[in-house]
Amino acid sequence: MKIKTGIGFDAHRFVEGRKLILGGIEIPYDMGLLGHSDADVLIHAIIDSLVGPALGRDIGNLFPDNDMKYKDIDSRILLKESVSLIRKAGFEISNVDATIIAEKPKMKPFIPEMRSMLADVMDIEIDDITIKATTTEKMGFTGRGEGIAAIAVSTIIKSFRQP
C-alpha cells in the first residue's frame, strides 16, 4: 500500500455580476469570484490536493484557463473528472481537509451543504471531508474583502493487490 498526501491552494478576487460559488453551492452574496470557470476556490484547492500526488500535475495542466471548453464551467464537473483520473491511476481518496479563508460572507451556515455536495461528487463518505472557515483578522486581500482563498490537504491510498 502506498499513502500519499497533497496540498492545494487557490485564490480569486471578488467582482460584481457573478454568483458566489463555493464547495459546489451558491452562497448568497452581492459579489462573486472572477475566474475562467465558476471560480470555486474550494473545489480548485481540493483538485490540486488530489491530482498533485496522484498524477504529478495541477488543475492548470488538466483544465487550462485558455481553453474555451472550460469557460464558466461548473467546478463540480472538473472535480468529478479529477477523481476519475486519480482512480484510473489506482488511487482512492482517504480524506480531504480544507479551509476557506474569507472575511465575508460568513461560511459556517453553508459548510454542512458543502460537505454533502463534495462527498457526493467525490463519491466518498461525508465523514471523510472536513471544511473549516477562518478570517485573516482584516489583514491582506481576504481581510480587506477583496477576495477569497482556500487551502486543502488530501490523503490518497494506492493498493498493490496481487491478482
Rank of each mutant, 00 (worst) to 15 (best):
P64L: 04
D123A: 14
A133R: 01
N61M: 13
E137R: 10
R144T: 08
I129S: 04
I126V: 13
V51L: 02
V41D: 02
S37R: 15
D72T: 05
A11H: 04
K158N: 09
D40N: 12
E125A: 15
I3L: 15
D48S: 09
L20W: 07
H12L: 00
L33C: 05
V96E: 09
V121H: 02
D123K: 15
I148W: 01
V121M: 04
L118E: 05
R161Q: 14
G90C: 08
A119V: 09
E81N: 13
A98T: 09
N61G: 08
A11D: 00
R144A: 15
L79M: 15
G8Y: 07
I126N: 08
I100F: 02
A149W: 02
Y29S: 03
A133G: 07
R18V: 03
K88A: 15
L118V: 06
F14C: 01
A89F: 02
L20N: 05
D127Y: 08
F91P: 04
M114W: 11
A89T: 02
L33H: 01
I124Y: 07
G6I: 01
K80D: 10
N66S: 08
K4S: 06
K88D: 15
T135D: 14
L20H: 05
H12W: 01
A11T: 06
A45T: 02
S75A: 15
E146H: 05
M122T: 10
Q162P: 00
V153K: 12
S154W: 01
T134N: 01
M1L: 10
D128T: 07
E146Y: 10
N66Y: 15
M31H: 07
S82T: 06
I3Y: 09
E92G: 12
I126W: 01
I77F: 12
L34D: 12
E26K: 12
V121Y: 04
I156N: 06
A45L: 03
I129K: 03
G90V: 07
M31N: 03
P105C: 06
I101A: 08
I47H: 08
R115F: 00
S82Y: 05
E113G: 01
I151Y: 02
G140Y: 14
G90A: 08
I151N: 04
P105E: 08
N66K: 12
I21L: 03
I129M: 06
P112C: 12
R161A: 14
P53H: 09
L50A: 07
A54I: 12
P163W: 05
H44E: 13
T134L: 05
G90Y: 06
D30F: 06
D127W: 05
V51F: 04
I93M: 13
K88Y: 09
D40R: 08
D30G: 02
T135Q: 11
K19V: 03
E16C: 00
D58R: 10
I7N: 12
G6H: 02
T99E: 10
E137Y: 10
